[in-house]
Every structure is written in structure tokens, then in C-alpha cells.
Design a protein around this nucleic acid. Structure first.
Lengths: 334, 334
DNA sequence: CTGTTAGCGCCTTCAG
DNA sequence: CTGAAGGCGCTAACAG
């Protein structure tokens, strides 16, 4: 089985390649109705499929965009990816998804690879570890959009949650329920990245606004592997927290593991709110109160922004930050 | 910012393109140490990055493979994808993942798209709805591997679970625990696909082998959206099942929703075993007994098989079925 | 060891 | 309306 090319079609239909090419690109004005029909038939007969690689080479556009997530294990990442995909699907754009695994080196490799593959643009959940690279892309005016986190000092359009508000919602909800010894546990991430910082800052501010005392022992940021350990320390204090905000789904998961193994009752011994709405929140016992990010809107915004940049749509006044509002879903864990 | 090409490098280093090309492909024997150094330097100076698209065109190989999963929502799919990715990463192969959403039309679109993109091979979790297409690929000797399910009448190497054994493990475990009214609930899938059929058949056989009676009312295959409904029917019978096998994670999830909303106690009112090991199984209360698929081995097998086919490795005697053994992880839901 | 010459498959002027 | 010619960026012989 040999690949059939545009040449084969042209020969069989006894016309020139260019006419077939016109046909492929739907520029029907440039041919008679008969030849159009003839081309159509022979294409079907031969089972011809245009070679996108060749087309990309001449057109200098691959109709595909790259998406690099910092960590695919977050439910948030997969939710965003799905909406990006839907958006692109409708526009005949393809996407290539890569997972940096929170490792800047891996992120760098993927960026290089995707650029070499000539993707038309990049949506990145930045690890924050490749400042120089981000900057170079930005300077070259390469179509680029950040999601989830912004990177200080680099002015790339970023689609983000209003992280401070997320913490605030949680704190307010706790306070309303009568809790006062409140803590927050988040993932440690690479430097220069905003999410964790904003959530912690928002937490502190909200505490103060509610006239509560901020206990630094109740604030920890550690790697996922060390969450249980950190929680253990916090929960072993004489005056231990009554309520905890889990900064993301993986952290929440680790806390739940600990809670289960140690027979801690939720919410009686410990009230819990998780940022990110996870699938099992509603079937857990007790059902978990969470703070959901509007992933559909955020994904759509990221994709549409990128597409506009690719098309050099100058109508849009690109902001550097697009903030979205979190929503508290009250269930029974607090 | 103009793209710098191999030509620019050649000119600046005052040598010919081909030498640079040799360098890029690490065929260092074909040049002096000095030119090698010179090339290296000018590449760095210019920030040159080879254009993979152009390379692919000449080499007729893109070093990328396509992966089409029937439904990305299954934990099984994502687990397999991750291991495939790891395998490919080590070999400088790229992957493009697509989600057919259980829709044959979508699957067809993706197959066409990936072929047009000239991917070197395809790993498919077949929906079962594109017999003609599968067959054409197979006839053309196009590198192709199926995962999770086989398609009757089409002889493509398939990497699968020993589905009958999975059901058998579950039934035996139930029987051992003293349950006798056992049911199974699975997803309905498109025709021609093996998984569900094998699981149900294995279920029946295991029941008989254990001297139990097979009650057809306790066997249902429905769409995810109708799982709760189907479960409701089953559970409303006068003689209702005491124990249920959830044929996959999504089905399990739906059952759990129903169970929660209706205050059914697990395992007292209903014993439960789920096929597929889901993340929350261990933290659910009670912790869920599951049957895990060896996703790491399966993913690796699928990827390595495909790579061998791509490389026309004739040493391998390709089987049409590669079966893997499920493992029961006993927890407390039965 | 290095340069020359042809393409890969397609698209895009530009004549006819 | 259709065809011929050139080129996208790279690799692969084949000379030298």
C-alpha cells in the first residue's frame, strides 16, 4: 500500500496538481463544475487523504496548539483541558497535551519540543521555573497564555482564579459556622508562582477581617508527599485547629487519608473545606464542602484568548490578568 | 523575529547545509572536530531549533503516535495513558491523545485526523463502531494496537484484561463471604466489543461453578446515565441482590451516589465490589473492595507492541490477544 | 570530511 | 478556468 498523493489524484483526473489543491482548499471558483466533480470522485476512488505535514510546511501553520499542564493529577487540570479541547474541536484545531509533572526541566523539554513541532501557540500552566524561556517567547510575540498561575515579572496574559477570594469564602464560611481556630494547608510549588501565595495571603486577610487570630502554626505549605506529616504536626498541637482549608484536591486527598486512618471525625473533630471541586466530594461521608473553580469559563477564556493571539486579532485589548470567581458549594464537612 | 533555518546556520558557519544536518543527526564521524564545534556555537548563537515538520516530511516519520481512548473519564484510560507516555518519553516519541467519548463518529474523525498528521502508529481503545476503518488499517499493515477491548472479526493485537477472571474473582470473594444473591451492573457499549460481554459471561460461569443460581434480573448493562435507574429497579425487587459487582469505575460511582442518597448501608444492606481500582476506594467509608487491572504492565505492553510494529520488528510473533490478570484488593465493602 | 543535487507533498503566484 | 514553476526546511545519496 503506497500513500496516494495529490499528484496521483491529479494524474488520474487528468488535470494539474494546483487545481486539485484549489479543490482541497475549497476555492471552487477556480474550476469548472465538471472538474470539481471529477476531482471529488477520483479522491474517493483513490481514498486520498491530504498530508497535513506537507501542508503545514508550506503554510507555516499546523493548526495545532500545545497545552502544558504543571500537574495532570489535579482534577482542575483535566477539567480545563477538556473545555479547551471542546473549544478547539469546534474550530478544527488540534491540541497536544503535555504534563510537566511540576518539574521545570520537563516543562522546558516540552516547550522546546512543541515549538519544534511548530505548534501555533501555547497554553501553559507554568511551573514557574523557566523565567528566561517564558520571557523569550513573550519577547518574540509568540502566542502564549498562562492558566492557573501568573509569573511575576513576566507580562503574559494569565487566566486565573481569584485566589484570595477563594480563601475568603472558606474562612467566612467557617466563621459563620462558629469555628475560630482555622488553618490552611497547601502544596509547595516552585518559586515565582502566584497561586499558593495568594491563597495564603487571602486567608490571612480574611482571618483578620473576621477579627480572628492568625496562628502561623496553622499555615503550612508542603509537597504532596509530606502533607500527612504536616497535618499530623498541626493536629498534634495542644491547641489544634478545628477547621482546615485544603489548598487543592491532592492536599485534600492526603488529609482525608490521614483522617481516616486516625479515626478523626469530620466535621466534629475537624471541619474541612477543599479548594477544587472533586468528583467524590458529593459521595464522601460526610459530603465535602468545596470551593469550585469555574473551569468551563476559564478553559474557554484561555483557548479563545490564545486563538485571538494566533490570529493577530488586534481588536482585543489583552489584559495581563483574567480573574474568575470561585463558588462555595456547601455540603456537610463543616 | 524571523525563524532561523538550517541554511542560516550553514551560511554563518560557512559550510553546507548537509554538514549541519549531519551534525543535527549526531553523525559526527562525518566532520572534523573543529567544524563540529563551530556548528555547535553558531547554533547556540542563532538560537536555532530544527523544524520537525520539515524533517518529518522527508523522513516520512513523525516520531509521534496517536492514542484514542474510548472514554477518558475512566480512571483506567488515564492510567494507561500515563504509562504509555512514560514509555514513549524514554524513546523520544511523542503522543497525541484523543478522546472518542464513546462515539464512533468522533473516533473516526480522530483516526482520520491522526493519519493525516502522519502519526507513525495508533493505539486505540476501540468504540467498536468503525469496523471498516479498523479493517482497512489492518489490511494496509498500518501499525495498530487495541487496548481494553478486542473487536470480533478483526485480527488486531489487543492488550486486554482477563475479564472473565475479574468477574470470577469477585464472585468467589462474595461467595466466600457468604453472599449468594449476587448481581452485576455494567456499562452498555457499542456492539462488537468484548469487555462487557466477557465480564458478564465470566460472571455467569463463576456463579454456576460455585453452585449459585444466576438470576437474569440481577444482570444489567446500561448507559452511565441510566445506572441509578437500573440499580433502583434491581434493588426494589422483592428478592433483591445482597451483593453487586460494578463493571467499571463510573458505574461504581453511580451506584455509590444512589446508595448515599437512599441511606443504604454498605456492606450490611449491600456488598460491593468494583472492577477498576479508583483513587477514592481507600478513603471511602467503608473502604471499597476493588479489582485492579495491572495498568502499568498493560500500558507498557501496548506501547512496546506498537513500537515493534512501527519498527517492523519481525522477531516478535504478534499474538492477537495479550491477556493480563486482574487482582482483587480486599477492603471493607463486602 | 564536506558540498552538490534531488526530492518529500503541498501551496502559491503567475502566465496562458 | 487551468497548468507550470518555485519553494517551505530538511535529509539522503553521491561525488569530490
Amino acid at each position: 500500500m503506497k500513500k496516494v498523493t495529490i499528484d496521483d489524484v491529479a494524474k488520474k483526473a487528468r488535470i494539474s496538481k494546483s487545481t486539485v489543491s484549489q479543490y482541497l482548499n475549497k476555492r471552487y471558483e477556480y474550476m469548472s463544475v465538471e472538474t470539481r466533480e471529477r476531482i471529488k470522485e477520483t479522491i474517493e476512488e483513490l481514498g486520498y487523504q491530504p498530508n497535513i505535514v506537507a501542508r503545514s510546511l508550506t503554510q507555516k501553520s499546523t493548526s495545532t496548539i500545545g497545552v502544558i499542564v504543571a500537574n495532570i493529577l489535579h482534577a482542575f487540570s483535566t477539567q480545563i483541558i477538556r473545555t479547551i479541547e471542546d473549544y478547539c474541536n469546534e474550530r478544527d484545531l488540534h491540541i497536544i497535551v503535555c504534563n510537566a509533572d511540576d518539574k521545570p526541566e520537563k516543562e522546558k523539554r516540552y516547550i522546546d519540543m512543541l515549538l519544534a513541532k511548530q505548534v501555533d501557540g501555547l497554553i501553559i500552566f507554568p511551573t514557574g521555573g523557566n523565567l528566561d524561556l517564558y520571557e523569550r517567547l513573550q519577547k518574540q510575540n509568540y502566542p502564549l497564555v498562562f492558566v492557573d498561575r501568573a509569573v511575576k515579572e513576566i507580562d503574559v496574559s494569565s487566566v486565573m482564579l481569584d485566589n484570595a477570594l477563594a480563601s475568603e469564602l472558606a474562612v467566612n464560611h467557617f466563621v459563620q459556622k462558629g469555628y475560630s481556630r482555622i488553618g490552611i494547608l497547601t502544596s509547595e510549588v516552585v518559586r515565582n508562582v502566584s497561586t499558593r501565595i495568594e491563597r495564603v495571603a487571602g486567608f490571612k486577610r480574611a482571618m483578620l477581617m473576621n477579627g480572628m487570630e492568625v496562628n502561623e502554626d496553622f499555615i503550612k505549605s508542603v509537597n504532596v508527599e509530606r502533607v500527612q506529616e504536616a497535618f499530623h504536626e498541626m493536629f498534634s498541637l495542644e491547641k489544634r485547629p478545628e477547621a482546615i482549608i485544603a489548598g487543592n484536591d491532592l492536599t485534600l486527598f492526603e488529609i482525608l487519608k490521614y483522617v481516616n486512618e486516625n479515626n478523626i471525625k469530620v466535621p466534629d473533630d475537624l471541619a474541612l473545606i477543599g479548594i477544587d471541586d472533586v468528583g467524590f466530594a458529593s459521595i464522601y461521608s460526610p459530603p465535602l464542602t468545596t470551593i469550585a473553580q469555574p473551569t468551563v469559563e476559564m478553559g474557554k477564556k484561555a483557548a479563545s484568548l490564545l486563538v485571538k493571539k494566533i490570529n493577530k486579532d488586534t481588536d482585543e485589548a489583552y489584559k495581563s490578568e483574567y480573574r474568575f470567581e470561585p463558588k462555595l458549594i456547601a455540603r456537610d464537612s463543616c
